[in-house]
Design a protein around this nucleic acid. Structure first.
Lengths: 115, 115
DNA sequence: GTAAGGTCTGACAGCGCTGTAAGGGTCAAG
DNA sequence: CTTGACCCTTACAGCGCTGTCAGACCTTAC
């Protein structure tokens, strides 16, 4: 299928589909005219990218993870790096939450001092 | 005092001090030669900007808040907008934490599925 | 053939800072 | 007067996407 249809079916913009490709996450065939030609395989990949992106991952991180996700749905091929990366990501998120919580505390303090 | 000294005393880079000025948060006098000349008043302001920034606020938001913070230390002049802005900021932070928490849940799920 | 609609590449813009570098004055001490 | 430390302005770069526009080609259908 062409890029427009894939965009419609996955809810990912045409712009981003091209961007994924530029970042090496996708490599669709090309028609003689140079049009990108995506297969069902690629559609799956896009859905997975979207899924992992929803978990707050960078495309770069997703790219590292992608080879492990080629097959099943939310299940992964047990790549060596997989667990490490996932755990690391959770750690990153925890750090950000921690930072935000501190900010929240500070602001709440200000707010209380105004009452 | 000149910008270098202020930077040293507040721990804010020269670059950022000039940036604050560009954003309208600071307006130091100028010597004949065009050098920025900061007074103790300005130093206080910088410390407050730093303080609010540590709470995760945007310079734009800080600018709105600044008039209310001109006087006391962690206490504020009760501007009309003050409470509203503070509460709004806390709300923003809560949203971000919520988003991150969801991401965390998703990732933790993946991680669990690998075990 | 023509027009509409899809696609291509390349590039600029914006978010909110922050560093750095270039090119050129200023000031104080020796 | 010279040197070194500081200061000035302007502007480019990077983070990680995402939209949008320009100029040009392809395709489908009437």
């Amino acid at each position: 299928m062409k890029i427009g249809e894939l965009a419609r079916r996955t809810g990912v913009s045409v712009r981003m589909l091209r961007y994924y490709e530029g970042e090496g996450l996708l490599a669709p065939l090309r028609t003689e005219a140079g049009y990108r030609d995506y297969g069902p395989e690629e559609e799956q990949t896009v859905r997975r990218i979207k899924m992992l992106g929803a978990a707050g991952m960078t495309l770069e991180t997703i790219q590292q993870l992608l080879p492990c996700v080629r097959n099943n749905d939310p299940a992964f091929t047990p790549c060596n790096e997989l667990r490490r990366i996932l755990a690391q990501q959770v750690g990153l998120i925890d750090e950000r939450i921690e930072t935000l919580s501190q900010s929240r505390t500070i602001l709440a303090g200000y707010l209380a001092s105004v009452n």
